[in-house]
Design a protein around this nucleic acid. Structure first.
Length: 393
DNA sequence: TAGGAATTTCCTGATT
DNA sequence: GAATCAGGAAATTCCT
């Protein structure tokens, strides 16, 4: 599971939990079962849903489409960019610039910012598309009064049910936004390499310090059960018309601002980069991904880009579809995307290609001699053949 | 808890 | 000379 931050967004308020579950409560309050069903569906986005999607939906809806742009992760943003790049001459290398952009940051960007980053044509298109997403009725906020203790408690119970079978902490394990106190999170759960979680918690910390919603009409929310305390989430609407992209704390800043003991004590997977073999240093570097979730190996990542041309913005192409021969068109961009997937910003094509070469031994890939950037799926690779790929409706 | 799997990182040398 | 390829070695986390 891709642990990140859970933002249930309620009229600009957020509840956070350590695992990733982004969902906006629909406007007309909803039956809780609907909320939880959808939340559950979303939560399994990297696991069972992949499987279910393949089985039940020939044209899987993009994950980000079910989520308010304010809650998009970096993956969602990249996915959205990819979807909107079709038919444009957008240079995929720009992903290098945009890879760390998450939903809240994106939403804070002005049209000019977006056009500066993506160029006038694509930038305009993206901005317009973003407005559409933001305007979706299902992403409009609930009246605050609709979000009460009971719902919070029900959510907690729901999480408790999940927790009995899976190791997901309850909202109860995280206490955020206590007045006059910083967020209190069980350390062993907090230090779990969940960078996005830290980001979310840090945001909540900062916000609970600055925009704490305990006064006046919000008191009911913020003082509700100890299970979850709502702290304010600045929405783009609440900011000035100017983009505060610059002022928004960067990931790096957030990392730097974290206290050492709040940071993860684990090393990142893989050999530490040279110059960071000193434990103190390497341990305070908030990397990153752990073991890849099942079904998300590198070769599968590559395969999925190839078999879903609509998701392939000119990064890879088939050289010989029947033989499984393919070529990297934008090798570094693919590496960046893989790094994005693994939450490893230092991924390069050189490293990626080393991992690819390991597949030769396992017959997942075969060598294609004399051709640069060209690989071929081997007999142990599955899911790439036309006969294995379900037709897209 | 040990061992294996799957990378990740670094390195050197060869090739294009 | 830069980019890429090839593969050994070491290191790490996660899974069984």
């Amino acid at each position: 599971m891709d642990g990140s931050v859970l933002f249930f967004q309620f009229s600009g308020k957020a509840v956070s939990s350590r695992w990733r579950l982004h969902y906006s409560i629909p406007m007309a309050v909803p039956s809780l079962s609907t909320v939880l069903t959808n939340a559950n569906f979303t939560m399994y986005q990297n696991g069972m849903t992949d499987l279910l999607t393949h089985i039940t939906s020939p044209v899987p809806e993009q994950q980000y489409e079910r989520i308010s742009p304010f809650c998009w992760t970096r993956d969602d943003v990249l996915e959205w960019i990819s979807e909107n790049m079709e038919g444009t001459n957008f240079d995929a290398r720009s992903i290098n610039l945009a890879w760390s952009l998450d939903g809240p940051s994106l939403c804070r960007m002005s049209q000019a910012d977006i056009m500066r980053l993506f160029g006038p044509q694509l930038g305009h298109h993206l901005y317009q598309n973003l407005l559409k997403h933001k305007a979706k009725p299902e992403f409009q906020s609930l009246p605050e009064s609709d979000m009460n203790e009971n719902l919070c408690e029900l959510l907690d119970n729901f999480l408790f049910g999940l927790n009995s079978e899976m190791r997901f902490p309850l909202l109860s394990t995280i206490t955020l936004g206590q007045q006059n106190e910083g967020p209190s999170v069980k350390k062993e759960e907090f230090c779990d390499n969940d960078f996005d979680l830290r980001l979310g918690l840090e945001q909540l910390t900062t916000l609970s310090d600055t925009v704490y919603y305990s006064e006046n009409s919000d008191s009911e929310l913020s003082s509700s059960s100890n299970s979850c305390v709502f702290s304010g989430l600045r929405t783009p609407e609440s900011t000035s018309g100017e983009s505060d992209w610059e002022s928004y704390p960067s990931n790096k800043q957030i990392k730097t601002e974290m206290k050492d003991e709040e940071y993860c004590q684990r090393r990142p997977r893989g050999r530490p980069p040279k110059g960071s073999r000193d434990h103190n240093r390497s341990f305070t570097t908030p990397k990153k991904s752990k073991h890849a979730p099942r079904g998300s190996h590198l070769w599968e990542f590559i395969r999925d880009i190839l078999v879903h041309p609509e998701k392939n913005p000119g990064l890879l192409k088939w050289e010989d579809r029947r033989e499984g021969v393919f070529k990297f068109l934008k090798s570094e961009a693919v590496a960046q995307m893989w790094g994005q997937r693994k939450k490893n910003s230092s991924m390069t094509y050189e490293k990626l290609s080393r991992a690819m070469r390991y597949y030769y031994k396992r017959n997942i890939l075969e060598r294609v001699d004399g051709r640069r950037l060209v690989y071929k799926f081997g007999r142990n690779a599955s899911g790439w053949r036309l006969s294995e790929v379900s037709p897209v409706m």
